[in-house]
Amino acid sequence: MPKFHARVLVSFRPSVLDPAGEATRSAAARLGIDGIEKLRIGKAVELQLDAPNELEARRRVEMLSDRLLANPVIEDWNMDLTPLSSSDNP
């Protein structure tokens, strides 16, 4: 079965306040790094999965992201999916 690598990035929706991001932004200023206007903290989830093809792999990671990795009330997500080695592809 082909193997895929997926990276799902989960971030707060733009309308949701990210106090941890704000605190980090002010620490950046204290470090002497100026000009950071916006800093938002999200999560990166890396996973490897076996699936019959890329379409199916994508479908599974989408479902996982929608139902578990992100809470659509407050978060958005996007993913990168790559086949792990071309010889594994059908």
Binding site: V16, L17, P19, A20, A23, N71, V73, I74
Partner: peptide
């Protein structure tokens, strides 16, 4: 129940 609970504003 609707909505979500998130990090306190003052952390």
């Amino acid at each position: 129940l609707p909505g979500a609970l998130t990090r306190n504003a003052d952390l």
